[in-house]
């Protein structure tokens, strides 16, 4: 039995070893050495960039987060003091985290649902489909700074068109950007305006669903709604999953739109303070580089945890066709 196992092992290793030998022979040949050199020459731009702009900054950022550096004097090592302060003494960290979660938890799923609904209306060919697809996509092309500038005026409490529209129905609109309770919903509205980016991805995904599936379901007497939930939705879950991950990551990194909407402040009673603006404030307003670095790592950890949760959950709801085929 032992010899059999050994033989199996040798058999498994055999082709591997041979490949290794071939590789070694190739490497020591003149041509191989030349190609190796050439490879490193070709990828050198990335290597240099990786070392200078990623690897070194990452290490130094980890170190800085353990110091009290103010960007001018020599940094003093303070151990985990910055992290302790973030979680137990900073009066603004928890609100900033709360607002960020509030924004992400509403805007990401809501965007996905609206995108899915619109994509379902737009996926099949009909007269005017191109026109409507274009119209829905164009807002997503508007740079955030420009979008936020328009929204500042759309949301103006007295003269803005949104409250003007609400007044037609006798509803008195809120003061939006001036009201601590309405400033995050205002940022969410802006995100929903740009729902076209996700919609376009979902249209492409829905068009990839084999038509035979719908035909078969129709023969079985499945209603349109049934077909949508039992065929379309499961088959586009990989794209929903992708949109959820990217939407969540960018949801945690909101900066430009809030900065422009509130003119660089954090809104009434810090009501629109979010995590990335808080990192920015600490680093470039208060020059508290050590503390800002610690905040950035905490943000990184939070995003990683949420991403991991979504990826874990994907086994339960993301459907890959290959699973059925194999």
């Amino acid at each position: 039995m032992n010899t059999a196992a050994a033989a199996r092992e040798r058999a498994a290793k055999g082709p591997f070893e041979a490949a290794k030998r071939r590789r070694f022979a190739w490497l020591s040949s003149r041509l191989g050495r030349r190609e190796t050199l050439l490879f490193y020459a070709f990828i050198s731009p990335w290597i240099i960039g990786f070392v200078v702009f990623t690897a070194i900054p990452m290490i130094s950022s980890a170190y800085l987060s353990l110091t009290d550096w103010d960007s001018f004097q020599t940094p003093n090592f303070v151990g985990l003091a910055n992290y302790v302060k973030i979680f137990s003494q900073d009066p603004l960290f928890w609100p900033a985290l709360g607002h960020t979660l509030y924004f992400a938890a509403i805007s990401v799923p809501l965007s996905l649902l609206i995108a899915l609904f619109l994509a379902n209306l737009l996926a099949k060919p009909f007269r005017g489909a191109k026109f409507f697809r274009t119209v829905i996509y164009i807002p997503a092309l508007v740079p955030l700074v420009a979008a936020a500038m328009i929204f500042r005026w759309l949301l103006a409490p007295r003269s803005g068109p949104i409250n003007g529209f609400l007044a037609l129905f006798g509803v008195e609109g809120p003061a939006w950007l001036l009201d601590a309770n309405w400033i995050i919903p205002a940022v969410i509205l802006l995100a929903l305006w740009q729902v076209g980016a996700g919609t376009i991805l979902l249209i492409a995904a829905l068009q990839g669903v084999p038509p035979e599936m719908y035909e078969a379901a129709e023969l079985d007497g499945a209603s349109r709604t049934r077909q949508f939930w039992n065929i379309s939705v499961p088959l586009v879950t990989p794209i929903l999953f992708f949109n959820l991950i990217t939407g969540m990551i960018s949801g945690f990194q909101v900066f430009s739109q809030v900065y422009v909407l509130t003119n660089g402040t954090s809104g009434p009673d810090n009501a629109s303070l979010m995590l990335v603006p808080y990192v920015y404030d600490n680093a470039f307003r208060y020059y508290d580089m050590g503390y800002a670095s610690a905040l950035a790592w905490v943000l990184f950890a939070i995003v990683m945890v949420f991403t991991a949760i979504v990826i874990r959950s994907s086994n339960a709801w993301v459907f890959y066709e290959t699973e059925v085929r194999s």
Binding site: F53, L64, A283, M289
Partner: peptide, 11 residues
């Protein structure tokens, strides 16, 4: 994430 690299890159 960009935020983690931001400060050292600035320096």
């Amino acid at each position: 994430p960009g935020e983690v690299l931001l400060i050292p890159q600035f320096i």
